[in-house]
Nucleic acid binder design. Sequence first.
DNA 1: TCAATATTTAAGAATTGACTTATATAAGTA
DNA 2: TACTTATATAAGTCAATTCTTAAATATTGA
Lengths: 128, 128
Amino acid sequence: MHALDVLGDPVRRRILEVLARGEHAAGALADVIGTEFGISQPAVSQHLRVLREQGFTRVRVDGARRLYAVAPAALQEAEAWLDQFRGFWEQRLDALGTELARGQHRGRRVDGAARSEGPQDGGQRLGA
Amino acid sequence: MHALDVLGDPVRRRILEVLARGEHAAGALADVIGTEFGISQPAVSQHLRVLREQGFTRVRVDGARRLYAVAPAALQEAEAWLDQFRGFWEQRLDALGTELARGQHRGRRVDGAARSEGPQDGGQRLGA
DNA sequence: TCAATATTTAAGAATTGACTTATATAAGTA
DNA sequence: TACTTATATAAGTCAATTCTTAAATATTGA
């Protein structure tokens, strides 16, 4: 299962947002999330399972409670996938910066035809 | 619809990967993607619609063909959501660096109880 | 104009996945 | 030990998505 498949669910994203603030017990999450989305404790528990099994969270046992916290691994994977597109918006920002630096309405090449905007032909200035 | 909901589909992700290499006609994508996933041309077209409507692609008309290309906006939204967790892995890398710098097995606080690993209490060193 | 190509849209079938209720497991507590 | 709290798992239901086939739209070229 791809990291982005896991993040493609609003409940799971919200759980991670809450966990970004710090460790929470499964029960506390079931309360908060369950109320927000109007779903049951088992429903939240099932999402916690996915997050756990896919490496988005780390669990610590404290008596009868399970304390969940964010684990970086899987989130980094999602980030890594997005990295291949970073060139697109960096270029966009560069263009803006250049435009501002040299004053507006100057040096704007608009030849229509075989134009393309991506960093596909070596235009990407990234390590990876 | 959240940007990450759109990315929570393997076919759509693959389409974007192909587009990251540059502009492609809808038909060319239908061929490549359709073959890879064993789905029909309309199926691919429907995914292209989602990507288009949600701001992941830009379309240019060339005669009877539609040339698709990556549009940065929506991808940036996804990136922005992930940003709130950046502190977690930056910290991880910081820790690794520190560990290496001062030699291993030193200064490792392991007190169990109220410990937490996130950047939740001001530990985050990010602009946002 | 007519046929061929390129692509989208429509409608319904099939599949997936996210819930629900019920139950199991385990740890605290009286 | 029995009861309560905390959480997870199981099994089945329901709904949202993702397909399929068929047909509509638009462009190119004979």
